[in-house]
Design a protein around this nucleic acid. Sequence first.
DNA 1: GACAATTAGTGGTCTTACCAGTACACCAAA
DNA 2: TTTGGTGTACTGGTAAGACCACTAATTGTC
Lengths: 259, 259
Amino acid sequence: MVSNSQDIGMTPRTPDAVAARLEQLILDGVFRPGQLLPSERRLCDRLGVSRSSLREGLRVLRSKGIIETRQGRGSVVAQLVPGRDDNPLMYLFRDHPRTLYDLLEVRSLLEGESARLAAERGTPADMVLIRRRYEAMHDYVESTSDVDVEHLARLDHGFHLAICQASHNPVLVHTLQSLTDLLLSSVFASVKNLYHRPGPREQINRQHEMIYRAVSDHQPEQARQSALEHLTSIGHNLREIEAENERLERSAMRLEAYE
Amino acid sequence: MVSNSQDIGMTPRTPDAVAARLEQLILDGVFRPGQLLPSERRLCDRLGVSRSSLREGLRVLRSKGIIETRQGRGSVVAQLVPGRDDNPLMYLFRDHPRTLYDLLEVRSLLEGESARLAAERGTPADMVLIRRRYEAMHDYVESTSDVDVEHLARLDHGFHLAICQASHNPVLVHTLQSLTDLLLSSVFASVKNLYHRPGPREQINRQHEMIYRAVSDHQPEQARQSALEHLTSIGHNLREIEAENERLERSAMRLEAYE
DNA sequence: GACAATTAGTGGTCTTACCAGTACACCAAA
DNA sequence: TTTGGTGTACTGGTAAGACCACTAATTGTC
């Protein structure tokens, strides 16, 4: 029978309470990683809720990766405690990895047009700004052998943003900005990885230089092409990194199996 | 279909499938932010699952912040990217009407690519849908001399949306959708005006037909070109209407001055 | 016209029943 | 003994139906 509640204003929501309660029990160490939870029927008894509500609560935990469930076996507390990435849209990408490449596709289109328009409409003032950003990035990469990836990412972003702003189209700036945020928040780890590798980094530097020159020299088509190449090669590299990560995960799973 | 859940087993989990399906529908723009979803009973019927499974699926979406639910009311789609595609740009429009043409510029780019991809990737099923939307619009225009502008705008929007969805890129769908919303909310009056004039309306019809044919015949470049022309000509027409309105306003002001 | 009561529809929860996998004890054959 | 099947008693997965609590639109009343 039901739990209480005359909780006005806010809704009680039994299943959410169940999820919260179990999560707390896990955090408190009552249920430890790898351990088999009591069966659903038993938990119903213990928590005083129906199986429907309990199952909804369990599903929330499952969708957060806190427990893993197999039919006929039961639910176990997941080994890996999920990272603190409570980003709301991260879920989209986690569940639909393909979305990442859809995102890159749209972004390529916009970056390409952005570079083209910058080369076409950029004022001398714009060019000065773009040049500064480019040199800041370039100098940083050249000056130190041990780069701070996060800092480099900021410089990189600043460079692209300067070009986009030179397009003198605020809507374009805004749209591109939001897509870039989305991209970085979802795959920042991979991007970091990208900067760490000497090969791709060299390639990125060359491409940045080409974009920079084309825009500075007011060569729209060239600028667009360079930006497109830049983005597609980033896509390829991310794909490779992803494939590699999957390989690593698989071998890790094999190791676990032997334990 | 997989969602999270380390579904190492082979069983297809109904609730996860439900969550994924609904999420896809939201991504595709079938259910849009702020919109009320069908009731649970109705969704059960439509998806062919029990209410228990459906509710578990909904709870996953709820825990991700994708939908919000209130007892006695229903579930509404939450803003996908909070604070992003809300209305930061709306302010721009108030201050700088020129932004409208920036918006059209970006939209042309996306519509063009959308049409190109649709022609390239569209499945037979996509084509059937596009054809239905096109014919619905076409028949309506042909059948009546005294069109309901608002209804026509909906049909028009549906046609473009169908093409965009045939691109099979949810990010593109979403981005284009939000830009279109922005456009309509800012200049719906002008768009109405556009439909009322026989000249531009004829032109629009011809262009729609060209887009339709190019996409149906799987001719990517042609489709892109047609979409681009369509948008640029809409831009021109809007410009004319705007100029005309300004003339009217000025003469109105002159009249006022005499009062 | 304003306001209260009715009512149909919504999500929230519980119950029951059955299906589909899994683990383990058991027992017969090699 | 070992091996291999097989039964059985669990597990989670799904469906269906019955309520309750709440909301909003409709209707009836003053």
